Amino acid sequence: MADAGWTDFEGTIPDDAISGGLENEHALPVCRVEIEGKMHPGKVHVFMCHFAFDGAEYLSDEFEVLTKAESDIEVWSALAVTDEADVVRSDNNTDETLQFPVCRAAWKDGLHPGKLEGAKCHFGYGGRELVAETYEVLQLVASE
């Protein structure tokens, strides 16, 4: 498995950030925010991390951005995940109840990153938490 990294946001998106999708032709890098002891993944838009929590979309200016090594390959899979070890999670904690796999789902003319919870992709949009049954899960694979 490749190693995903989380980098503190300091005003600019790192060159090695992983984009989770697009909206209006703008990349939406994957971010995460800690809420109630869990790391919730979301999307960076206009220097804020937008994430779904408790039925709403929240914004935070204190967050981390998902990055990868140049040699790693990101794969967004809509099919069954073949190797759970490659799935990128919001937290490396061994307690799986504190982890959310990173997902993305299509909405309107965009593709929005969020968190996989209960076999559905939850993402923030327009102030609400939206839930998609059709989604892709992020895997990060080390190049050979």
Rank of each mutant, 00 (worst) to 15 (best):
I13C: 05
A56T: 14
K38A: 11
E36S: 14
G21Y: 00
D54W: 13
L28N: 00
K43T: 03
I13M: 08
I18A: 01
A27L: 11
E36C: 12
G42E: 01
E23H: 07
G11W: 09
F9K: 03
G11N: 08
H26D: 13
I18K: 00
H45F: 13
R32I: 03
T12I: 14
G11L: 08
A17W: 00
G21N: 03
V44T: 06
C31S: 04
M48A: 13
M48G: 11
E34G: 10
V30F: 04
C49P: 02
H40Y: 12
G55A: 07
I18S: 01
E57A: 05
A52C: 08
C31L: 05
G37D: 07
F51W: 07
D15H: 13
D54N: 14
R32C: 05
K43P: 02
A17N: 02
A56C: 14
P41I: 02
M48P: 12
A17E: 02
D16L: 08
G42F: 03
F51A: 04
H26Q: 14
I35D: 09
E10A: 15
H50Q: 10
M39A: 12
H26W: 13
G20D: 00
V44D: 03
I18V: 06
H50C: 09
P41T: 04
M39N: 11
T12F: 14
L28I: 03
A52V: 05
I35M: 11
G20T: 00
F9T: 04
G55L: 05
D15R: 12
P14C: 04
M39L: 13
A56V: 13
K43S: 06
C31D: 02
G20E: 00
T12E: 12
G11Q: 07
H26C: 12
G42K: 00
K38W: 10
L28A: 02
E10H: 15
D15Y: 14
C31A: 06
V30N: 01
N24P: 08
E57C: 06
I13K: 05
E34L: 12
D54M: 12
S19F: 06
P14D: 05
D16M: 08
K38D: 11
I18Q: 01
F51I: 05
C31F: 04
V30P: 00
A52I: 03
F47T: 15
V30W: 00
V44Y: 05
P41Y: 04
K43F: 03
I13P: 02
L22Y: 12
G55T: 06
L22F: 12
F9M: 08
S19N: 08
A17I: 02
C49W: 01
H40I: 10
E36R: 13
F47K: 15
F9H: 04
V33D: 01
A56M: 15
C31K: 01
H40A: 10
G20K: 00
F51M: 07
R32V: 02
I35A: 10
R32Q: 07
V33R: 00
